[in-house]
């Protein structure tokens, strides 16, 4: 499903090169639930951004679903993300001026779906995360756990093959964190969605199929 070959990412200033990722090669299978762990600043989020096509590598290749995504134009990458990837962020990234259902339907808006279809799919996604009754609420009327569930609904509304989750439980207490984790596990088990999750939490990582550990931008065997 996902294949990284010799992936490196460096950031440059006038006098300094900072290596964020160093020669990463890995494969993630279809339907796999993988967690990425490591100390702060080791490159976990950078790696997730590379897999999620939100940033481009300095060297190396990324392919998803057999598509080599090297040298693709930005708009083509945007289309690929829209059709194949879902994102969940630690800080939820909900648009505060949009209602829950409007937040959830955002990926479908850029896919060009009709209003009727957007509504149907968004309600279906909200049903899955148990928030259909809150569809007309605004993010500031929800708890942290509910906000993250809305973000999960937004991530899955377009039925992506891969969901990228960047510390999805990082801003939640253990109870709410477990609820969110259970939703991701259900999504992976029931709908065979590949999930790549960055986490600091060992207990959450243990629930996934495989843990990838990073240290100073390199994979740790």
């Amino acid at each position: 499903m996902i294949e990284l070959k010799n992936l490196s990412k460096s950031y440059y200033t006038d006098v300094l090169e900072t290596v964020a990722l160093n020669d990463i090669s890995l494969k993630i299978g279809k339907g796999e639930f993988v967690s990425i762990m490591g100390p702060s600043g080791c490159g976990k989020s950078t790696l997730l951004n590379m897999i999620g096509l939100l940033d481009s590598p300095t060297r190396g290749h990324v392919s998803i679903k057999g598509v080599n995504l090297e040298n693709q134009k930005e708009n083509d990458l945007a289309k690929f993300r829209n059709e194949n990837l879902g994102f969940i962020f630690q800080s939820f990234h909900l648009i505060s001026d949009l209602s829950v259902i409007d937040n959830v339907e955002l990926p479908l808006l850029y896919r060009g779906e009709s209003a009727k279809e957007r509504k149907r799919l968004s309600e279906e996604a909200l049903e899955k995360v148990g928030l259909l009754n809150r569809k007309n609420h605004y993010p500031n009327q929800l708890s942290g756990g509910q906000r993250q569930r809305v973000a999960i609904a937004r991530a899955i509304v377009g039925k992506p093959a891969v969901v990228m989750a960047d510390e999805p439980t990082g801003n939640l207490d253990s109870v709410l964190g477990n609820e969110v984790m259970q939703l991701l596990l259900d999504l992976n088990e029931q709908e065979k969605v590949t999930v790549v999750m960055v986490t600091h939490d060992e207990s959450m990582a243990r629930k996934t199929h495989r843990v990838i550990r990073l240290y100073d931008g390199s994979l740790v065997n």
């Binding site: 939100l54 708009n75 829209n82 896919r111």
Partner: peptide, 12 residues
């Protein structure tokens, strides 16, 4: 950033 992540093109 979010809009671009979920598929908005530069034109969008």
């Amino acid at each position: 950033g979010l809009r671009k992540a979920v598929g908005a093109s530069t034109g969008a």
